[in-house]
Computed example of a mutant assay.
Amino acid sequence: MAIETPSRVNHAAEPSVAELVRRASDDLSRLVRDELQLAKLELAHKGKEAGLGAGLLGGGAGFAFFGVAALVTTAILGLATVLAPWLSALIVAVALFVIAAVLALVGRSRLRKSVPPVPEEALASAKADINKIKGSMHR
């Protein structure tokens, strides 16, 4: 009676290392393709939602514009009860132009601070990292 030793066990049923690597590569490729497909579907859905949201936001801004116009008209008509209508309209128009000028000046100031759009902190951090790496290489 012969006893099977580990060296005599039939390994023909087990896949080879090359076959396992090929299977793993195929599985990884399929996984990446599936994940990319899922990402495409998710982005398409989010894009539709963002488009709808932007449209609704634009609609709301349009109605807000007309609401402000109605308030301006109300201010003109309210002043017209004590002043001439043309003078009421002139006073409200000048007030609106003053508000517009102040907003434009503040906006221009903020815009100048943000230009050029360079991530200065990130660049400084990257330069510091590069200098640190260079310093450690020269030791």
Rank of each mutant, 00 (worst) to 15 (best):
M1Q: 05
A2N: 05
I3C: 00
T5V: 05
P6C: 03
R8S: 14
R8V: 05
V9W: 01
H11Y: 11
A12Q: 10
P15E: 02
P15K: 06
S16F: 04
S16V: 03
V17F: 03
A18Q: 14
E19H: 13
V21P: 00
R23N: 06
A24F: 10
S25K: 10
D26F: 03
D27E: 13
S29V: 05
R30E: 10
V32N: 02
V32G: 00
D34H: 05
E35G: 02
L38E: 15
L38V: 10
E42M: 03
E42Q: 12
E42F: 01
E42D: 10
E42G: 00
L43R: 15
L43K: 13
L43P: 00
H45I: 07
K48V: 07
K48W: 06
E49H: 01
E49L: 13
A50H: 11
A50C: 02
G51L: 11
G51W: 00
L52G: 03
G53R: 15
L56I: 08
L57V: 07
L57W: 08
L57E: 12
G59M: 08
G60M: 12
G60Y: 09
G60L: 15
A61G: 04
A64W: 07
F66H: 09
G67E: 06
G67S: 11
V68K: 02
A69Q: 13
A69K: 14
V72R: 15
T73W: 06
T73N: 12
A75N: 11
I76H: 06
L77R: 14
L77Y: 02
G78Y: 10
G78T: 15
A80Q: 05
T81F: 01
V82W: 09
L83M: 12
A84G: 09
A84L: 07
P85V: 05
P85H: 04
W86L: 08
L87N: 06
L87H: 11
S88T: 09
A89Y: 03
I91Q: 03
I91M: 07
V92Q: 01
V92K: 06
V94D: 04
A95I: 11
F97K: 03
V98C: 10
V98E: 12
I99R: 14
A101E: 06
A104N: 10
L105A: 14
L105F: 14
G107W: 10
G107Q: 14
R108D: 08
K113W: 03
S114P: 00
V115E: 14
V118P: 00
V118M: 07
V118A: 02
V118G: 01
P119R: 08
P119S: 04
P119V: 01
E120W: 15
E120M: 14
E120S: 05
E121S: 09
A122L: 12
L123T: 01
S125T: 13
K127L: 07
A128T: 15
A128C: 03
I130V: 12
K132E: 12
I133Y: 06
I133L: 15
G135L: 07
G135Y: 01
S136I: 07
